[in-house]
């Protein structure tokens, strides 16, 4: 009886996911993008490709860490020389660094819009274009309606969207599938070695639709993500929650 109940629950969960636009694909292997334990936080244990991911940052240092982490993710999407669009109104990304994270910088097309409004318009247009690997946009604000529009565009075209936004504006609810916060943490080298090591981040999933938020430590080394001291999902008590109060 108990087994039956669990089965029914599982089936209902799948139904809910399908109704919310997250259609599981046949090849689940394609959705493993090398994030290791982080992927387990998502529904079905697969990174939601059809969705808008929101990255928040406070300060330039976190923005740089976010760009690095995101570039690592993009490298998984941009296999076989697919193209990615990077839309922003004030761009600071230094293109050669993309190569260090496994992305060919000449396959990234930078779109510099004059106004914030145009960035959202460009992102929506780009998300409708099925040939792209991913679309990244840097914005100041993102309200629920805007994110819903983007999410609907994504569900049609299967192009993954990433929105990078700063925490300087208040952060309300959005329709994004996940909200990430990447912070740089001290790198480590072998005992007694001088210098700065591989980039390390604290990756925090603040919100996951139908998933479990959590916090992990990761390193980018030898062209892939390396989880550090894997921990179980811990009760959410994040920095952002404290900030927002």
């Amino acid at each position: 009886m108990r087994v039956d109940k669990r089965e029914i629950m599982n089936r209902l969960r799948q139904d809910i996911l399908r109704l919310q636009g997250d259609v599981p694909t046949a090849s689940s292997a394609a959705q493993h993008i090398g994030l290791g334990p982080v992927e387990k936080a998502f529904p079905n244990g697969a990174f939601p490709v059809r969705g808008i991911h929101e990255f928040i940052y406070g300060g330039q240092e976190e923005a740089a860490a976010t760009s690095g982490f995101l570039s690592g993710l993009l490298s998984r999407f941009m296999k076989d020389s697919r193209v990615c669009l990077w839309i922003s109104a004030s761009r600071a990304l230094f293109p050669p660094v993309l190569k260090a994270f496994g992305v060919d910088p000449h396959h990234v097309i930078f779109v510099d819009m004059a106004r914030e409004k145009d960035v959202m318009w460009a992102m929506e247009e780009a998300l409708k274009c099925g040939g792209l690997a991913a679309v990244v946009a840097e914005v100041q604000t993102l309200d629920f309606i805007q994110s819903r529009r983007l999410q609907l565009a994504v569900e049609k075209s299967r192009v993954t969207g990433f929105v990078i936004r700063s925490t300087s504006q208040s952060i309300g609810a959005t329709a994004c599938v996940a909200r990430w916060h990447i912070r740089p943490i001290a790198s480590a080298l072998d005992e007694g070695m001088p210098g700065v090591g591989f980039p390390r981040w604290e990756v925090e999933l603040l919100k996951v639709r139908n998933g479990n938020p959590g916090r992990w430590k990761m390193e980018w080394a030898h062209g892939r993500f390396l989880p550090l001291a894997p921990r179980q999902t811990q009760p959410l008590m994040s920095g952002w929650d404290r900030k927002s109060g």
């Binding site: 020389s81 193209v83 097309i109 510099d112 819009m113 318009w121 247009e125 040939g131 792209l132």
Partner: peptide
């Protein structure tokens, strides 16, 4: 997929006509 894609070229044309050639 890739830079030769016609859909991509058409997308870029639309973006350009909104914000100028220097935007891309």
């Amino acid at each position: 997929p890739g830079l030769e894609d016609t859909a991509l070229a058409e997308l870029l044309d639309r973006l350009k006509s909104r914000s100028g050639t220097r935007a891309i």
